[in-house]
Design a protein around this nucleic acid. Structure first.
Lengths: 108, 108
DNA sequence: CCTGGTACCTTGTAGTACCGAGTACCACTA
DNA sequence: TAGTGGTACTCGGTACTACAAGGTACCAGG
């Protein structure tokens, strides 16, 4: 599969929100999770910029914990605003993807 | 529905390709078509920049024809390279949307 | 003449993912 | 004990895209 970066714009942040929402986790693990989901070209730098943005926008709660196998981890969990944002994201996704699928089916 | 612009990045060009591929048409009509498909905030300027990009990248064939109700129209049709690009776009869309849907279903 | 619909173009901006490089902690091993 | 590899986070700069905002121009009807 060739380059997906442009198509991921606007959706990757929502994917990260979903991952955080299903389980409190940290940047490095989120990157691995995205990679195993099939987003193989997503790199750490990208995920960390998203996480910093989420934190800046007040959508997550951050807790630092020691790791044992490396430097301390920053664990992220959704707060109320984050859960609302996640719901908005899925609504938008539903809206956009259904319309694109309709266009694909030759919808008039 | 709130702002969709970020989510449309990387997909809008493919949508325009699909519209052109199903019927030779022109910028103003493509904008109207996208609006009635549900992409209500897409404006003319956006479509024209996409059309210029498609032309620059050699994906379309352009024909100017008089209109009768206004200035002349520039009709766009896909060439072979455009059809290939369109197929690639749909393959990418299939790939990305299926993976996001899986994530949404809590896919592990 | 003036308004509104049609039709196209251009410059600049904001937002997002990525690149590249750096810092740092830890376990294992030659 | 120096080196390697995996873990983990940060930051400055870049490329690409959709949009905003304004302009030009053609035509019909009041």
């Amino acid at each position: 599969m060739d380059d997906l970066t442009e198509m991921l714009k606007g959706t990757l942040e929502g994917c990260v929100l979903e991952i955080i929402g299903s389980e409190e986790t940290y940047g490095y693990a989120i990157t691995r999770r995205l990679n195993e989901l099939g987003f193989i070209d997503v790199v750490e730098g990208t995920v960390y910029t998203i996480l910093l943005r989420l934190e800046k926008n007040g959508l997550v709660q951050v807790t630092k914990r020691p790791s044992g196998v490396g430097p301390p981890r920053k664990f992220y969990a959704l707060n109320d605003a984050g859960r609302e944002e996640l719901a908005r994201f899925w609504a938008k996704w539903e809206y956009v993807s259904s319309r694109i699928d309709k266009l694909k089916e030759g919808g008039r």
